[in-house]
Protein backbone atom coordinates (compact mmCIF):
# COMPACT_ATOMS: atom_id res chain seq x y z
CA UNK A 1 0.00 0.00 0.00
CA UNK A 2 1.22 3.50 -0.90
CA UNK A 3 2.31 5.79 1.96
CA UNK A 4 0.09 8.59 3.21
CA UNK A 5 0.45 11.88 1.36
CA UNK A 6 -2.03 14.12 3.14
CA UNK A 7 -3.38 13.62 6.61
CA UNK A 8 -6.15 15.72 8.17
CA UNK A 9 -6.81 15.34 11.87
CA UNK A 10 -9.94 16.58 13.57
CA UNK A 11 -10.53 19.56 11.33
CA UNK A 12 -13.29 21.90 12.48
CA UNK A 13 -14.48 25.28 11.32
CA UNK A 14 -17.24 27.50 12.63
CA UNK A 15 -18.90 30.51 10.99
CA UNK A 16 -20.63 32.33 13.80
CA UNK A 17 -23.30 29.85 14.87
CA UNK A 18 -22.82 27.53 11.89
CA UNK A 19 -20.56 24.56 12.51
CA UNK A 20 -19.44 24.11 8.90
CA UNK A 21 -16.98 21.33 9.71
CA UNK A 22 -16.29 19.21 12.73
CA UNK A 23 -14.19 16.17 13.48
CA UNK A 24 -13.03 15.68 9.91
CA UNK A 25 -10.24 13.13 9.93
CA UNK A 26 -8.93 11.30 6.88
CA UNK A 27 -5.76 10.35 5.08
CA UNK A 28 -5.06 10.36 1.35
CA UNK A 29 -2.48 7.93 0.00
CA UNK A 30 0.01 8.85 -2.65
CA UNK A 31 -1.29 8.27 -6.16
CA UNK A 32 -4.93 8.12 -5.15
CA UNK A 33 -7.89 9.96 -6.57
CA UNK A 34 -9.74 10.70 -3.38
CA UNK A 35 -13.32 11.91 -3.66
CA UNK A 36 -15.00 14.32 -1.31
CA UNK A 37 -18.76 14.30 -1.70
CA UNK A 38 -21.82 15.39 0.19
CA UNK A 39 -24.97 17.44 -0.31
CA UNK A 40 -24.79 21.18 -0.96
CA UNK A 41 -23.64 23.03 2.13
CA UNK A 42 -21.98 19.93 3.57
CA UNK A 43 -18.71 21.81 4.06
CA UNK A 44 -16.62 20.49 1.16
CA UNK A 45 -15.49 23.89 -0.12
CA UNK A 46 -14.91 25.00 3.45
CA UNK A 47 -12.53 22.07 3.91
CA UNK A 48 -10.61 23.18 0.81
CA UNK A 49 -10.40 26.71 2.13
CA UNK A 50 -9.13 25.54 5.50
CA UNK A 51 -6.64 23.20 3.87
CA UNK A 52 -5.33 25.85 1.46
CA UNK A 53 -4.84 28.36 4.28
CA UNK A 54 -7.56 30.80 3.23
CA UNK A 55 -9.39 30.46 6.54
CA UNK A 56 -6.74 31.22 9.09
CA UNK A 57 -8.82 30.43 12.15
CA UNK A 58 -9.70 26.78 12.02
CA UNK A 59 -9.13 23.84 14.31
CA UNK A 60 -7.33 20.62 13.51
CA UNK A 61 -4.04 19.76 11.88
CA UNK A 62 -2.76 18.89 8.41
CA UNK A 63 0.29 17.01 7.38
CA UNK A 64 1.67 16.67 3.87
CA UNK A 65 4.13 13.77 3.81
CA UNK A 66 4.49 14.19 7.56
CA UNK A 67 5.21 17.91 7.33
CA UNK A 68 2.88 20.00 9.49
CA UNK A 69 1.02 22.53 7.33
CA UNK A 70 -1.31 23.75 10.06
CA UNK A 71 -1.68 27.52 10.10
CA UNK A 72 0.37 28.22 6.99
CA UNK A 73 -0.63 31.06 4.65
CA UNK A 74 -2.07 30.11 1.24
CA UNK A 75 1.15 30.91 -0.62
CA UNK A 76 3.13 28.74 1.80
CA UNK A 77 0.68 25.89 1.35
CA UNK A 78 1.11 26.19 -2.41
CA UNK A 79 4.88 26.23 -2.01
CA UNK A 80 4.64 23.02 0.04
CA UNK A 81 2.90 21.29 -2.85
CA UNK A 82 -0.87 21.65 -2.64
CA UNK A 83 -2.58 23.40 -5.55
CA UNK A 84 -6.28 23.95 -5.93
CA UNK A 85 -9.02 25.13 -8.23
CA UNK A 86 -12.14 27.02 -7.25
CA UNK A 87 -15.79 26.06 -7.43
CA UNK A 88 -16.65 29.57 -8.60
CA UNK A 89 -13.82 29.84 -11.14
CA UNK A 90 -11.17 32.36 -10.08
CA UNK A 91 -9.00 32.89 -13.10
CA UNK A 92 -7.13 36.12 -13.81
CA UNK A 93 -9.93 36.92 -16.22
CA UNK A 94 -8.35 39.79 -18.14
CA UNK A 95 -5.01 38.08 -18.65
CA UNK A 96 -4.41 35.62 -21.44
CA UNK A 97 -4.70 31.90 -20.81
CA UNK A 98 -0.94 31.64 -21.24
CA UNK A 99 -0.26 34.36 -18.67
CA UNK A 100 -2.54 32.61 -16.21
CA UNK A 101 -0.46 29.46 -16.40
CA UNK A 102 2.80 31.44 -16.38
CA UNK A 103 1.69 33.00 -13.08
CA UNK A 104 1.30 29.48 -11.75
CA UNK A 105 5.07 29.08 -12.28
CA UNK A 106 5.78 31.99 -9.91
CA UNK A 107 6.25 29.84 -6.86
CA UNK A 108 8.82 27.59 -8.58
CA UNK A 109 10.88 30.39 -10.14
CA UNK A 110 13.18 33.04 -8.74
CA UNK A 111 13.77 36.19 -10.81
CA UNK A 112 13.35 39.32 -8.71
CA UNK A 113 13.40 43.03 -9.46
CA UNK A 114 17.09 43.17 -10.33
CA UNK A 115 16.76 40.11 -12.53
CA UNK A 116 13.77 41.67 -14.29
CA UNK A 117 15.61 44.92 -14.98
CA UNK A 118 18.99 43.51 -15.95
CA UNK A 119 17.49 40.49 -17.72
CA UNK A 120 20.72 38.55 -17.75
CA UNK A 121 21.25 35.11 -19.20
CA UNK A 122 19.74 33.34 -16.21
CA UNK A 123 16.57 35.44 -16.15
CA UNK A 124 16.12 35.04 -19.90
CA UNK A 125 16.52 31.30 -19.59
CA UNK A 126 14.04 31.20 -16.72
CA UNK A 127 11.49 33.29 -18.64
CA UNK A 128 11.83 31.02 -21.65
CA UNK A 129 11.38 27.95 -19.46
CA UNK A 130 8.30 29.46 -17.81
CA UNK A 131 6.70 30.12 -21.16
CA UNK A 132 7.64 26.73 -22.55
CA UNK A 133 6.21 24.93 -19.55
CA UNK A 134 3.03 27.01 -19.63
CA UNK A 135 2.45 26.12 -23.28
CA UNK A 136 3.08 22.45 -22.50
CA UNK A 137 0.49 22.57 -19.76
CA UNK A 138 -2.09 24.28 -21.97
CA UNK A 139 -1.45 21.49 -24.43
CA UNK A 140 -1.73 18.91 -21.66
CA UNK A 141 -5.22 20.05 -20.66
CA UNK A 142 -6.19 20.51 -24.31
CA UNK A 143 -6.56 24.28 -24.71
CA UNK A 144 -3.30 25.23 -26.37
CA UNK A 145 -5.17 26.87 -29.24
CA UNK A 146 -6.63 29.35 -26.75
CA UNK A 147 -3.25 30.43 -25.35
CA UNK A 148 -3.58 34.08 -26.32
CA UNK A 149 -7.27 34.53 -25.53
CA UNK A 150 -8.34 36.36 -22.40
CA UNK A 151 -9.09 33.77 -19.75
CA UNK A 152 -12.49 35.33 -19.08
CA UNK A 153 -13.51 34.93 -22.71
CA UNK A 154 -12.99 31.15 -22.78
CA UNK A 155 -15.86 28.69 -22.79
CA UNK A 156 -16.84 27.49 -19.35
CA UNK A 157 -15.32 24.04 -19.72
CA UNK A 158 -12.09 25.56 -21.03
CA UNK A 159 -11.93 27.88 -18.04
CA UNK A 160 -12.13 24.86 -15.75
CA UNK A 161 -9.29 23.20 -17.66
CA UNK A 162 -7.28 26.40 -17.54
CA UNK A 163 -7.64 26.45 -13.77
CA UNK A 164 -6.28 22.92 -13.70
CA UNK A 165 -3.34 23.90 -15.93
CA UNK A 166 -2.58 26.89 -13.72
CA UNK A 167 -2.68 24.70 -10.62
CA UNK A 168 -0.44 22.08 -12.26
CA UNK A 169 2.06 24.83 -13.08
CA UNK A 170 2.84 25.10 -9.37
CA UNK A 171 4.15 21.50 -9.44
CA UNK A 172 1.81 20.21 -6.76
CA UNK A 173 2.07 16.88 -4.98
CA UNK A 174 -1.64 17.12 -4.30
CA UNK A 175 -4.10 18.66 -6.74
CA UNK A 176 -7.36 19.70 -5.10
CA UNK A 177 -10.25 20.23 -7.51
CA UNK A 178 -13.52 21.84 -6.44
CA UNK A 179 -16.31 20.62 -8.74
CA UNK A 180 -14.28 20.60 -11.96
CA UNK A 181 -17.13 19.06 -13.97
CA UNK A 182 -19.69 21.68 -12.96
CA UNK A 183 -21.21 23.18 -16.08
CA UNK A 184 -19.59 20.66 -18.41
CA UNK A 185 -21.53 18.64 -20.95
CA UNK A 186 -21.19 14.86 -21.24
CA UNK A 187 -18.37 15.00 -23.79
CA UNK A 188 -16.43 17.53 -21.76
CA UNK A 189 -16.91 15.47 -18.62
CA UNK A 190 -15.61 12.39 -20.39
CA UNK A 191 -12.54 14.35 -21.49
CA UNK A 192 -12.10 15.60 -17.92
CA UNK A 193 -12.19 12.04 -16.66
CA UNK A 194 -9.39 11.08 -19.05
CA UNK A 195 -7.45 14.15 -17.95
CA UNK A 196 -7.79 13.24 -14.27
CA UNK A 197 -6.59 9.72 -14.95
CA UNK A 198 -3.64 11.04 -16.90
CA UNK A 199 -2.70 13.45 -14.12
CA UNK A 200 -2.78 10.60 -11.65
CA UNK A 201 -0.72 8.43 -13.97
CA UNK A 202 1.83 11.26 -14.07
CA UNK A 203 2.27 10.92 -10.32
CA UNK A 204 0.03 13.61 -8.90
CA UNK A 205 -2.45 12.73 -6.19
CA UNK A 206 -5.93 14.20 -6.58
CA UNK A 207 -8.48 15.36 -4.05
CA UNK A 208 -11.75 15.71 -5.92
CA UNK A 209 -14.94 17.45 -4.87
CA UNK A 210 -17.58 16.56 -7.38
CA UNK A 211 -21.33 16.45 -7.70
CA UNK A 212 -21.30 14.38 -10.87
CA UNK A 213 -21.69 10.96 -9.24
CA UNK A 214 -20.93 9.06 -12.42
CA UNK A 215 -17.57 10.76 -12.59
CA UNK A 216 -16.90 10.18 -8.89
CA UNK A 217 -17.84 6.52 -9.09
CA UNK A 218 -15.71 6.08 -12.21
CA UNK A 219 -12.44 7.74 -11.20
CA UNK A 220 -12.21 7.77 -7.40
CA UNK A 221 -10.34 5.07 -5.51
CA UNK A 222 -11.99 6.09 -2.27
CA UNK A 223 -14.50 8.71 -1.25
CA UNK A 224 -15.28 10.56 1.94
CA UNK A 225 -18.87 11.65 2.45
CA UNK A 226 -19.60 14.78 4.46
CA UNK A 227 -23.01 15.70 5.78
CA UNK A 228 -23.52 18.90 7.75
CA UNK A 229 -19.78 19.16 8.20
CA UNK A 230 -19.40 15.68 9.65
CA UNK A 231 -17.84 12.67 7.89
CA UNK A 232 -20.49 9.98 7.64
CA UNK A 233 -18.78 7.39 5.46
CA UNK A 234 -15.50 6.59 3.82
CA UNK A 235 -14.48 3.82 1.47
CA UNK A 236 -14.51 2.57 -2.09
CA UNK A 237 -17.25 4.20 -4.20
CA UNK A 238 -19.15 0.93 -4.52
CA UNK A 239 -19.34 0.49 -0.73
CA UNK A 240 -20.17 4.09 0.03
CA UNK A 241 -22.98 4.06 -2.49
CA UNK A 242 -24.71 1.30 -0.52
CA UNK A 243 -24.20 2.94 2.88
CA UNK A 244 -27.56 3.61 4.50
CA UNK A 245 -26.45 6.91 6.03
CA UNK A 246 -25.20 8.18 2.68
CA UNK A 247 -28.43 7.30 0.97
CA UNK A 248 -30.35 9.04 3.70
CA UNK A 249 -28.16 12.16 3.51
CA UNK A 250 -28.83 12.43 -0.19
CA UNK A 251 -32.53 11.48 -0.05
CA UNK A 252 -34.73 14.31 -1.22
CA UNK A 253 -31.65 16.21 -2.35
CA UNK A 254 -31.11 16.93 -6.03
CA UNK A 255 -28.29 14.41 -6.10
CA UNK A 256 -30.44 11.48 -4.99
CA UNK A 257 -31.30 10.59 -8.57
CA UNK A 258 -27.64 10.76 -9.55
CA UNK A 259 -26.55 8.35 -6.86
CA UNK A 260 -29.24 5.91 -7.88
CA UNK A 261 -28.47 6.36 -11.56
CA UNK A 262 -24.75 5.88 -11.02
CA UNK A 263 -25.59 2.74 -9.06
CA UNK A 264 -27.80 1.49 -11.86
CA UNK A 265 -25.28 1.95 -14.66
CA UNK A 266 -22.17 0.91 -12.79
CA UNK A 267 -21.11 -2.64 -13.66
Amino acid sequence: MEPVLLECRNVAKKFGGVQALSGVTFAIRRGEIYGLIGPNGAGKTTLFNVLSGIYARAEGRFFLEGRDLTGLAPDEVAACGIARTFQNIRLFANLSALENVMIGRHVRTRAGVIGAIVRGARTRAEEAAIERRAIELLDYVGIRARANDAAGSLAYGDQRRLEIARALATEPRLLALDEPAAGMNAAETAALRRLLERIRADGITILLIEHDMRLVMAVCDRVLVLDYGVPIAEGAPAEVRRDARVIEAYLGGPIAGDVAAAGAVAP
Binding site: A83, R90, L91, L95, H106, V107
Partner: peptide
Protein backbone atom coordinates in the same frame (compact mmCIF):
# COMPACT_ATOMS: atom_id res chain seq x y z
CA UNK B 1 -6.93 40.57 -10.93
CA UNK B 2 -7.72 38.28 -8.01
CA UNK B 3 -5.82 38.38 -4.76
CA UNK B 4 -7.17 35.12 -3.34
CA UNK B 5 -6.33 33.21 -6.50
CA UNK B 6 -2.89 34.83 -6.55
CA UNK B 7 -2.19 33.73 -2.97
CA UNK B 8 -3.44 30.23 -3.66
CA UNK B 9 -1.03 30.02 -6.60
CA UNK B 10 1.86 30.66 -4.23
CA UNK B 11 2.34 34.40 -4.60
CA UNK B 12 3.32 36.08 -1.35
CA UNK B 13 0.91 38.95 -1.85
Amino acid sequence: EDEIAARSMGINT
